[in-house]
Design a protein around this nucleic acid. Structure first.
Length: 338
DNA sequence: CTGGGGACGGGGCCC
DNA sequence: CGGGCCCCGTCCCCA
């Protein structure tokens, strides 16, 4: 969404939440990555090419929009937005993208309705055509697996229950694949703590655990306390991470707001640019924040993630369940009377 | 009041 | 050990 438009739409928002419109924004924001910049990719915004697989024009209907030739370049918004933040991009030209099958059901095609680009950006640095590849799986390819068509790849796991029958409803997410679950990732770990049984994929991980974390073990229980507050951590790394919440080294060049971590800043910058890389499989709604998409997905489910243990009513968010319990689960009140 | 979205914080894990 | 990313969670605001 162009910044100017967004500012207009924020007319009813508190001042602190309104994006700031600049007339003289530099062409390219500073690289947020803390990694050394790859100089070979200087000018990356203009040089990124989409995958050579068939692409889909977002403006066309799914049935008619499959083309064998990719567009010359992703459309870059111009006026009234003078600036569109483009996250650092990792280009992997040798990566194989799954071909688009004509078997895609139209209802599975979607794109960000806010995102002006026809290529979805995911935070792992991959560019895909906006449809039919989406962020809906919440499992970016990363090092785990290449992104697959919706019909093939495992989809987001937070077990949405079917919201209804009928062909109009897209298939609901299947259980998360083992590769996507940190818990299941550990199942393949071969380094197990003899004290508590917890497993790690690397010996160093196990060593860290035994030295600092394992309550059942004999390792030294060092503690690291924050000099800014009362918090105490069992590892220096955790303390350093916490200290960043005091020092806030990552500063937004647009509004000056500071954050503890680069990726928090990246998420914040999306509030300025309107970039919404995470789109819902079911309703096409797009989000700038993965967690918000996750919460949104709950709204598509009849049986939501958080349930009242007393009356079995389910809620999409913990806060709603808390409110429910605090304010008035009638069955709770009945229990208290008994 | 309830449900939902936006923005953000923090700990854990992997590389 | 640090960076990057994940998930979980909270707080606030709004319709």
């Amino acid at each position: 969404m162009p910044v100017g438009m967004m500012a207009k739409n924020y007319a009813h928002c508190p001042l602190k939440k309104r994006p700031i419109v600049f007339d003289d924004i530099p062409d390219e924001p500073e690289n947020l990555s803390t990694k050394p910049e790859d100089l070979s990719r200087t000018g990356r915004l203009a040089s990124i090419s989409p995958p050579s697989s068939p692409t889909i024009s977002p403006s066309a209907t799914p049935e008619s929009s499959i083309t064998s030739t990719p567009p010359s370049s992703p459309p870059i918004p111009t006026s009234p937005a003078h600036f569109m933040y483009q996250p650092p991009i990792k280009v992997e030209p040798l990566r194989e993208y799954p071909p688009i099958s004509p078997d895609y059901a139209p209802q599975t095609w979607h794109r960000s309705v806010y995102h002006p680009y026809m290529y979805h950006y995911n935070d792992m640095g991959y560019h895909y055509p906006a449809s039919p590849y989406s962020e809906s799986s919440l499992s970016p390819p990363h090092h785990r697996q290449p992104l697959q068509p919706l019909a093939l790849r495992p989809v987001y796991s937070e077990s949405l229950s079917p919201t209804g029958s009928g062909a109009a409803s897209p298939p609901l997410p299947a259980p998360q694949s083992p590769e996507d679950s940190s818990e299941k990732r550990r199942q393949g770990a071969r380094h197990q703590c003899p004290d508590c049984g917890k497993s790690y994929s690397t010996f160093s991980g196990l060593s860290k655990h035994r030295q600092f974390h394992c309550a059942a073990g004999e390792g030294p229980k060092k503690s690291f306390s924050c000099k800014y507050c009362e918090k105490v951590y069992v590892s220096l790394g955790a303390l350093k991470m916490h200290i960043r919440t005091h020092t806030l080294p990552c500063k937004c060049t647009i509004c000056g707001k500071a954050f503890s971590r680069p990726w928090l800043l990246q998420g914040h910058i999306r509030t300025h640019t309107g970039e919404k890389p995470f789109s819902c499989t079911y309703c096409n709604r797009a989000f700038a924040d993965r967690s918000n998409l996750r919460a949104h997905l709950q709204t598509h489910s009849d049986v939501k993630k958080y349930s009242c243990s007393t009356c079995s009513k389910t809620f999409s968010r913990m806060s709603l369940l808390t409110k429910h319990n605090e304010g008035g689960c009638t069955l709770v009140h009945l229990d208290k009377m008994c």
